[in-house]
Amino acid sequence: MSVPILKQGDYLIASIQSALTDSEVLKLRDDLADRVGNFRSRGIVIDVTAVDVIDSFVARSLQTIASTAKLRGAETVLVGIQPDVAVAMVQFELSLDPLLTALDLEEGIAALRRSTGGVDEDGR
């Protein structure tokens, strides 16, 4: 199952709906790289609320997405990491650098606005 990618203004939102195979992760990586270029997006939000395992391959793929996007001037925020997944990632000692992380979609978009020099709705 491929991951739907929505364009919302300057940002792309990829919402992962279920457990992904490695090839689906790679497809997401390539799709995002294409769209960031096509749409000249300034930010990507990847929602992993429904993801129950983030292992080294997924983490590395996400890092690649973020690094590639960064080269094209876009920040990437990972949102919706579940408590148990967060514990597993930390215990595994996985790094997500240079991704940003935020609690949920709303926070993710707010984080993008701040880091890409935009302004929050509440004027911060």
């Binding site: 514990v87 990632m89 930390v90 992380t101 609690l103 926070e107």
Partner: peptide, 8 residues
């Protein structure tokens, strides 16, 4: 670290 992954 885990708190930070959850945005806190």
């Amino acid at each position: 670290k885990a708190s930070r992954l959850m945005g806190a």
